[in-house]
Design a protein around this nucleic acid. Sequence first.
DNA 1: GGACCCAGGGAAAACCTTTTCCGAAGGTCG
DNA 2: CGACCTTCGGAAAAGGTTTTCCCTGGGTCC
Lengths: 351, 351
Amino acid sequence: MGTAQTGTGARPPRATIIDVAREAGVSPATVSRVLTGSKPVSAEPEQRVRAAVARLGYRPNPAAQGLLRGTTSAVGVVVPDLSNPYFAEVLKGVTNAAQHADFRTLVADTGEKAGAERDAALELSRWADGIVLCSPRMSQWELTELAAAVPRLVCVNRRSRGTRIPAVAVDFEAGVASICRHLRELGHRRVAYLRGPARAWSERARQRALRAAGGPDLEIVQIPCGSSSVDGHSAADAALATGATAIMAFSDYVALGALARFDELGVSVPEEISLTGFDDIALSRLVSPRLTTVTVNKQDLGLRAWQLFVDTGADGIAGSVVEVTPELVVRGSTAAPAGVTSPRRETVHDR
Amino acid sequence: MGTAQTGTGARPPRATIIDVAREAGVSPATVSRVLTGSKPVSAEPEQRVRAAVARLGYRPNPAAQGLLRGTTSAVGVVVPDLSNPYFAEVLKGVTNAAQHADFRTLVADTGEKAGAERDAALELSRWADGIVLCSPRMSQWELTELAAAVPRLVCVNRRSRGTRIPAVAVDFEAGVASICRHLRELGHRRVAYLRGPARAWSERARQRALRAAGGPDLEIVQIPCGSSSVDGHSAADAALATGATAIMAFSDYVALGALARFDELGVSVPEEISLTGFDDIALSRLVSPRLTTVTVNKQDLGLRAWQLFVDTGADGIAGSVVEVTPELVVRGSTAAPAGVTSPRRETVHDR
DNA sequence: GGACCCAGGGAAAACCTTTTCCGAAGGTCG
DNA sequence: CGACCTTCGGAAAAGGTTTTCCCTGGGTCC
C-alpha cells in the first residue's frame, strides 16, 4: 500500500519518466515540467502526474539528469586521514552545509600520503562539481597544476600566495601569538616548542609567528617532534632537558602524548611545567589537568569551505581567502613558573 | 606540455569520446573498446587512440556511463555523527576498501536524529549502488521497509533477527562477558553499570550479557547514563553512591567522562574504584590511568561491511551476518578492590 | 584457386531526462 | 465576429557512452 516495495524477492526495474507519463496519460515533457517547475502546468494534469509519481514511487535518475545538466550536485572532500578527528569534523561541516543545499558529499582518504592527493582529487572531481582539499601536503607546484585541472578547488588550511585558489585557513600565526602572550604574562621566559611536520604549511606559519614572538623576554627552544601523540610522548624528555618552564606543542594530540609522558615521569603539570596545545580537540577537556589550548571551530571551517565553494563560480574565478581566528582558552595546564608569583589577572582569556 | 590544462582563464569544455575518435581517426566504438577492453583492438589503432586520449586529457563522463550501465560505482555510508571517532573510523574502513575496488564513497550525517536516517539513506541510494547504514537508531519496522526500498543495504552494529538484512556487528555480549569475567577474577563482587541509550540496539545486547553474567558472585547495579562523556561525568556520583567497587561504562567516551569526575572528586582510580570502557578509542591510551577496555577494530568493521556489500548480489539476496569478537585489553584503570589481595596472574589478557 | 570462417571496426540504438521548438486551443480586444 | 495573443502540452533533439548488429577484408582449408 505504501510507495515502498516491500516484497523480498526480485526488484522491479525502477520506473522511468516514460512510465509515469503513460500512467498519467500525458507526455514525458509534462511530467518533467511538473517535477522541476520549469514551466507551469494546469491543475488537472498536474494532479494526475503527482498521483502517478506517488503510485510508481518514481524518482528521477540522477545520471540522466547529470548527463543533461553537465553538473553533479556533489562536492568531493579529500582528507589526509579520516581517523583524525580534526578532519572528520571538517568533513562534517562540509557535509552538513552541502546537505542543506541538496548536494551530496563524496569523500576520499589519502592515508597521509602526499603522493596520493593529486590522483584522489582528480578522480573525485569526475564525479563532483568541485573539490574541497583539506590540509594538502603536496607541493606548491603540484597544487597549482591541480587547481587548473579541477573545476572548482577550495583549500582548507593551506594558503598559496601566488595563486588564486580560494582557501579557508586558521590564522595559525595569531593562535601561536596568543599562546606566547599568555605564557609571557604568566612569567615564563624560556619555552620549548615541539615542532610539527616540516612540510606542513601550518608548521611554517607557526614558525613565522614564533620568529615574531621570540625576543629578549621570551626565548623559544625548538624541539623536532611530529604530529602524532606518540611523537609528543617521545619528544617530551628532550623538551624537559632544555630547562624550559613551559612547553608549547604543535597540536593537542602532540600535547596529550607529552602529558602522558610527564605522568609516567611523575612530573606534575602545571606545577613543575606548563603545557599548551593547539586545536582544542574533544579529549583536551577530559584529561587531567585540562589542556590550555587554542580553539578552532572545525565544523565552521568546513562550512566556510562550502561557502567558498558556492561562491566560486563554475568558471573558477574568485580567489578569496577566509581567515578564521582561533581563540585562546586557558585551562589547568598552564600556570606561573615555580618561584614566580602569579600575576593577579583572573581572566587572561583572549578574544 | 603535460596533460593538465595549466591556463588560468576559461576552461575548455571537456573532451568527449567523439573528439578522441576524430583525433585518432577511428570510430567512437573503437575508442570505447580500447578503454574498456570489451573487445580486442589491433595494435596500430590502439596506439593512436591512446595517444589521442593522452593528448586531449580525455576521461569518460561518469554520468553517461552510469546512465548506460545502470550502476554508479559508488557506495553510500550513513552515520549518526561524523564527529564521533567511532563512526569516522568505520567510514574510513569502508572508504579504503571501496577505493581499492574503484568505488566512490558518499557520506551522509544524520546528526543523531533517528527520523533523518530513512530519508538520508533513501536519498543517498539514488546516487549509489547501495548503502552502509551505521548503528541505525530507527525502528525495526522502518528498517525492514527501508531494506526493501534500497538496492543493497548493509547494517553495521545492528542485527535484526527477523529479516535477511546483511550486517556486521560487534559481539557486544562477548565483550561485556569478558569485562565481567575480568572484574570477577580481580575480586569485585558489586559492579555499577553506566547504561547507554535505551533505544540503542547495542545497549540491549549489553543488557542480555549482563543478565547472563550477573549472579550470586557478581551483583550488577544499573545506573541510567547515556552515550557521551558528559553523561558519564554526571552519572559518576550516582555510581559511587552505590558502594560498588568497580564501574563498567557503556563506552570509552562515557568512561572518560566519569574518570574526569573522579579526578575532580579526588577519587583515585584504580585504588579506590576500578573503571572499564568499551571500544578502545585512541584517547583511552592517553589518559591516566590508561583505560581497561574492550577493543574493536573499527576500520575492520567498515572493511567487512564493504565485503558484505560486495557479496550481496545486485538482486539483494544474501542475508549473512558477520560477528566481530572484541578483545579485552587490560590497562591501568582496573585492579583488585581495596582489601583484596590481587590474585597472582599477570596476564588476564583475554583472547 | 575457390569457399568458408574469423576478426576487426563502423553505424546506430539504447540508457533517461530536460528543454527547445512548435502547434493547437481558448480568450480578449478591436 | 474576426484576428491576434497567450497559455498549455506534445514531439523531438541533445547530452556522452556502451554494445549490438552488421559488413568487409584477409586468411585457411580443401
